[in-house]
């Protein structure tokens, strides 16, 4: 759809002929996808259509049955603990659904894990950076001394985002960042991602259910239907004939969210 005029853009994630499945159930049937530098790409689809599986296979947590995946110019199909993948992993950050913070460490220590592992910074600088990242994601400085179990769901996600950003990645993967948040927190989180994306020049790969998030921050949307991808902007997708996409964007929730856009 929007492909031809964007051909010259810098492709950061390239998926070709991807097949994913479990047992004899195929989730993705030879799908292709390009993600361009500096864009926010939203991935939607019904429950069980393999949104998270797509994300996980791009970051190398799941090995696909077939196909090629490249991120930042390197294949992610190799051993996830190989040196090549290490280099790649330093250049992206991942926010998992529940934050996936290490429960035995404080929030500040969580943020410092990649710094400690991959840089030779002094403890003072690491403390300063942790505090700066906390401020960036809108957490108060004393949140750094707390353990993940002492945080609310929304704070955990913010802390998880701070950890994902600790190495200043080029590429950010978000797995349902606003799921389980109240609408106000979800809006704030959307704003936060938008603002960070602008100021840090991030490329964001975003899996979500939340139509408000899609409207607020995505440049393009990928819909997973019938094991294939439909790619386009919101206004393009609203004209789609596919029953699921139609339902999704013109259901009560979808209409409400989109009406606020047109208003």
């Amino acid at each position: 759809m929007a492909e031809p005029q964007q051909k010259e853009k810098d492709v950061v994630i390239k998926v070709r002929g991807l097949v994913n499945g479990f047992g004899n159930k195929i989730l993705h049937d030879h799908i292709d996808l390009d993600v361009y530098r500096g864009e926010v790409l939203g991935v939607v689809g019904g429950s069980g259509t393999g949104k998270s599986v797509l994300l996980r296979s791009i970051i190398g947590l799941i090995r696909p049955l077939e196909g090629e995946i490249e991120a930042l110019g390197h294949s992610t199909l190799g051993d996830i603990e190989s040196p090549e993948m290490r280099k790649l992993q330093m250049r992206w950050g991942v926010l998992f659904q529940e934050g996936a913070l290490f429960s035995s460490q404080t929030v500040a220590e969580n943020i410092q894990v990649p710094l400690r592992e991959y840089t030779s910074m002094s403890q003072t600088l690491m403390d300063e950076i942790a505090e700066m990242k906390l401020a960036m994601v809108g957490l108060p400085p004393d949140a750094g001394d707390k353990f993940p179990s002492e945080l609310s769901g929304g704070m955990k996600k913010r802390a998880g985002l701070a950890r994902a950003l600790s190495l200043d990645p080029e590429l950010l993967f978000l797995d349902e960042p606003t799921a389980g948040l109240d609408p106000i927190s979800a809006n704030q989180f959307d704003e936060l991602i938008k603002q960070l994306q602008k100021s840090l020049g991030l490329t964001v790969f975003l899996v979500t259910h939340d139509i408000d998030t899609l409207r607020a921050i995505t440049d393009r949307i990928v819909v997973l239907v019938n094991k294939k991808l439909v790619i386009g902007t919101i206004s393009e997708l609203r004209k789609s004939d596919d029953p699921w996409i139609k339902d999704y964007f013109s259901g009560v929730r979808g209409r409400a969210a989109l009406a606020s856009e047109e208003a």
């Binding site: 505090e131 700066m132 401020a135 960036m136 108060p140 400085p141 004393d142 001394d145 603002q195 960070l196 602008k198 100021s199 840090l200």
Partner: peptide
Amino acid sequence: KPLFETLDQERQSEPHKLRI
């Protein structure tokens, strides 16, 4: 410029004391 603006406004808070 946006990056500096983001950082500069956000880190105005007082340095906090370590709890433990």
